[in-house]
Design a protein around this nucleic acid. Sequence first.
RNA 1: ACAGCAGGUCGUUCUAUCGCUCGCAAUUUUAUUGCGUGAGGAAAGUCCGGGCAACGCAGAGCACCGUGUUUCUUAACCGGAAGGUAUUCGCGAGGGUACAGUAUUGCAGAAGAAAAUAACCGCCCCGAAACUUGUUUUCGGGGUAAGGGUGAGAAGGCGGGGUAAGAGCCCACCGACGAGCCGGGCAACCGGUUCGGUCGUGCAACUCACGGGUUGAAAGACCAUGUAUAUCGGAUACGUAGGGCUGCUCGCCCGAUGCCGAGGGGUAGGUCGAUAGAACCAAUUGGCAACAAUUGGUCCAGAUAAAUGAUAGAAGUUUUGCUUAGGCAAAAUACAGAACCCGGCUUACAGACUUGCUGUUGUU
RNA 2: GAUACGUUAGCUCAGUCGGUAGAGCAUUUGCCUUUUAAGCAAGGGGUCCCGAGUUCGAAUCUCGGACGUGUCA
Length: 135
Amino acid sequence: MSEINYRLGKNQKLKSFKVIGNLFQGGNSFIAYPFKVVWLYNESDTRFFRFSVSVPKRKYKRAVDRNLIKRKIREAYRLNKAVLQADYHGKLADFMVIYIASADAEYLVFENAMKIALTKLRKKITTLDTGEEIV
RNA sequence: ACAGCAGGUCGUUCUAUCGCUCGCAAUUUUAUUGCGUGAGGAAAGUCCGGGCAACGCAGAGCACCGUGUUUCUUAACCGGAAGGUAUUCGCGAGGGUACAGUAUUGCAGAAGAAAAUAACCGCCCCGAAACUUGUUUUCGGGGUAAGGGUGAGAAGGCGGGGUAAGAGCCCACCGACGAGCCGGGCAACCGGUUCGGUCGUGCAACUCACGGGUUGAAAGACCAUGUAUAUCGGAUACGUAGGGCUGCUCGCCCGAUGCCGAGGGGUAGGUCGAUAGAACCAAUUGGCAACAAUUGGUCCAGAUAAAUGAUAGAAGUUUUGCUUAGGCAAAAUACAGAACCCGGCUUACAGACUUGCUGUUGUU
RNA sequence: GAUACGUUAGCUCAGUCGGUAGAGCAUUUGCCUUUUAAGCAAGGGGUCCCGAGUUCGAAUCUCGGACGUGUCA
């Protein structure tokens, strides 16, 4: 996976009800404002990081607002996957990004925040995963 | 020209780069490439009505809930259209609201004499007593709805006759109600006319007519997984315990899969349902209209932790400011995101176009 | 997606088969006390979530809207 592509297909999305349930029950989490990231090592043999977005209905009543925020977050991840994935050979993980700020923002804010969140996630994954070596 | 009323239509566009859903095809092999495709008038609120599905249903009565002017429309409706009556807002074009019945029973706070077989004050008559001896006062009996600080509502209105004083007590006119006749209208109803003194209001209960089985796609079907109302022991004993039929009663049906004790699981999802329909567009015909019929054409999202996007640039529209003008600058560019599907209703909405009509001002 | 309910004083709630809006706590003032607390007495404080309608009269009944809360795999 040396060549970077910006695709974000169905198989890179976290879709199973059960996996999400496990994620919230047994997953680790940290905050990289305005995001909260919940993650767990992926035990099955998928070939990708699996990713999902959530925006609380409590804070954004209208479906239009929620959709817009989710799309921006998804876009930010799609364009900055490299931060997490480039030259990474350790254990893969599933993670969910939850938007916890109470106001919408410009796309650039999302992009910068996403970079910070992904570097933080990468560090956490590699330090906890003692069995593998980092290049 | 400006202001407005009623109806209808639309509700941003283009380019570049990187992406997403679904379908088809190809390559190769479980990912990539190419082509096509992809939100609304309200997709919203979930307020009505259907389709569809499961379960239930011998039947009858009562209860409960909903609706309530007429005719039409529709698959159906608490929808829509055209009317009717009353009321209300507007100078007007027009808009809003209400509408089955009242035989019986009940309620109507406060205020007021009295809130429904009305005598507190007043007015009038009769009798008695008192003395201040008269158009007097007091007491008692009766008549009386013309007048009286109230009130949403006070026993049709107004004038005349009549009377002790009064009263539809009688009469004329007006209003309402009931009955009859004539004309118009499919009908609600409207207009005219004759007769009858028949003449207080509102809201409930109640009565009448019509409709209503329950639950909603998280319904449900199939596949996969699973020994899964598993299995063992005991008590009860035959239509018994109990259950079902929206609630109740009658009645009918089912009925050991129930009770007690011991004991033992699984949860991983997928496909269908689910997108060709009371569909949409155009024309013609019928109808005041809602709407219907016929002919021709079109295929128009189908996701499921849930696609329809992000970034950059340009254009359009509106408002404001500056400017003689051309133009320049700034700001704004709505409401809002399908989740089984239709028909309505309601609510939100920057703005644009269009048809008919009304008012004001000016010109001819 | 479906469905059930709530909104009344600063807070927690009564009042909902129509008729002057209440209780407890809090708050203000006075009394008591050396002072505070407690106690006693008096008072203030209301867009009854919003807008229409029915009615003589609406917190209550009807319709529409806003916000909030629960239940169902």
